[in-house]
Simulated assay, not measured.
Amino acid sequence: MNDFINELQLKIERLENEINFKNGLISILSHDPKELFGTFLWLIEELEQKTLSEEDFFKLLPQVKRDAQKNLQTIQDSNAWLKTQYGDFKIKPVKIMVMDLFHYLEEKYAAQLNEKNIKFYFKGDHDAFLTSDRLLLEYVLDKIFNNAVKYSFPNQDVYLQATTEGDQVVLSVIDSGTGIDEKYLSTIYNYGSPIFLGTAGEKGVGLSLKIVKNFISLLKGNIQIISAENKGTTVSLFLRKFIE
């Protein structure tokens, strides 16, 4: 009887988490684009009515651009999550060399790394591999690495570390950037948590890590974030070496 109750409680907890996740996603999708387009429409109307000078209009464009980039990222993240909600979605495990993931990030972020003069290194087991869903795993690493670059200062280093522990592979993205204050760390997956700007003014909506946690659950893994303000962040993924 106790086992049945415990199992039922776990199911209720999973359902509550899923409902909270979906409600938060709906809140973000309904608020952010409305705010952006409202601001953009106001700027155009002010310019048309000549209550805003062209000079001031162009001064405001960089901020509008950052808001647009943030909202585009929200839509892309949401679309990635929606693909996992279709009835026929299934994990598609393939053999993935961790070094291939390193080169994927290295190539995708070449421009951003160069812009901040950040060096990206691999350390650990160069022969490490796992069987996992490439689409989900690349998304997860992409978002974690994006944050590492965003919150790193120029001329700092970022690492992808791989260790194999029995039937588990641990992938860690390590930076020495701004870090996260301990009082915010416990609420990082909550929708009420604060949003921080990157070291070059990069803006986010705080959605990516929430989807990352959702995807890690689909991959039957765990995520751990260790961080200290002004000392950097280490995000570790504990993944099964083989997933069915």
Rank of each mutant, 00 (worst) to 15 (best):
D3S: 10
F4W: 03
E7V: 03
L8I: 12
Q9I: 08
I12K: 10
I12P: 04
E13A: 15
R14H: 10
E16Q: 14
N17G: 15
I19G: 01
G24E: 02
L29G: 08
D32L: 13
P33R: 00
P33T: 11
K34L: 04
G38S: 11
T39H: 05
T39L: 13
L43G: 11
E46S: 15
E48M: 10
E48T: 11
K50F: 04
L52D: 07
E55I: 10
D56R: 11
F57P: 07
F57H: 07
F58I: 13
L61F: 11
Q63Y: 12
R66P: 05
K70P: 02
Q73P: 01
I75T: 05
Q76L: 14
Q76G: 01
D77A: 12
S78Q: 00
S78H: 07
A80Y: 08
W81P: 06
L82K: 00
K83F: 09
Q85M: 14
G87C: 06
F89D: 04
I96D: 08
M97L: 12
V98E: 02
D100R: 01
L101N: 00
E107G: 05
A110S: 14
A111M: 06
Q112C: 02
L113G: 03
N114Y: 08
I118R: 07
F122V: 13
T131N: 12
R134G: 02
L137F: 04
Y139S: 09
D142A: 00
F145Y: 10
N146F: 12
S152H: 05
F153R: 14
P154G: 05
D157N: 15
E165G: 04
G166E: 15
D167V: 05
V169A: 00
L171H: 12
S172Q: 05
S172H: 05
S176R: 13
T178K: 04
T178F: 01
E182S: 03
E182T: 06
Y189H: 03
N190C: 05
S193G: 10
G201N: 13
K210C: 07
I211G: 01
K213T: 09
K213Y: 08
I225D: 08
I226W: 01
I226T: 12
A228Y: 08
E229H: 00
G232E: 05
G232M: 04
S236K: 14
L237E: 02
K241V: 06
